[in-house]
Amino acid sequence: MSRIDRRFAALKATHRTGLIPFVTAGDPSPQHMVALMHALVDAGADLIELGVPFSDPMADGPVIQHASERAIAKGVGLNEVLAWVAAFRQLDTDTPIVLMGYLNSVEIHGYARFAQEAVQAGVDGLLLVDCPLEESAVLRPLRDAGLQQILLAAPTTAPARMAQLCGSAEGFLYYVSFAGITGAAHLSTGDIAARVADIRAHAKAPVAVGFGIRDAASAKAIAGFADAVVIGSALVERLAGATDAEEIAVRVRAFLTPIRTALDAH
């Protein structure tokens, strides 16, 4: 059983909704990245999504674009991200880590090399925004090394394709709550509920819902029907500009605690 599978099994056993914060690796501060990851766990994160900064984040809105630009300007690349995961793993061997990003980062690093280094660092899964199922043959070495490919499903996904995604999902299936980019604000829970219920009935893996969740209220609304919620832009925005570990931890706590509480009260 993978670390991700174990974590979702534990959530299920305790009837809790998973909390998955997303942060852009290297933002707000490369020096305090490992501290930030621990702070996320201390504030209730069940799994961490770490964004690998990419120069051309086609599926991201301005908040994550700017966070990526800041991180890239500070020289952050895959090597740094993997080093932070390895450092985090010295103290935390339970919290699953999923890298989220774009295929070119891995392609240029080299698939086989990446697979080996990522597993060694303690990465559990990979969510590549621009690598749909049809193109994932290149990820073979990653899967062979034990990394789980987190697939996305969207409101536009046609039924036949959804069945295919449900059948191939591993780790968890990430349902994008609306057609759009990260950081956009609209969330209509009614439509999502029906779709997610249908996916959960068919998917081999748990379903996390992301896009448009930005606070306790929106998280709670989703918690009624999802296995986990992903919160990205709102958190990245809140962290921007924090310069020391203490400040980062304070902001993480202030942001995530009400969300954790709302999820657990559900």
């Binding site: 690598c131 049809e134 969207a154 536009t156």
Partner: peptide, 21 residues
């Protein structure tokens, strides 16, 4: 699949797979 040998393909976000199809 839109491939010219090793090149081409459809490397896009899931949301665009349906409109592209």
């Amino acid at each position: 699949y839109g491939r010219f040998g090793n090149y081409g393909g459809s490397y896009v976000a899931e949301t665009l797979m349906a409109p592209l199809a």
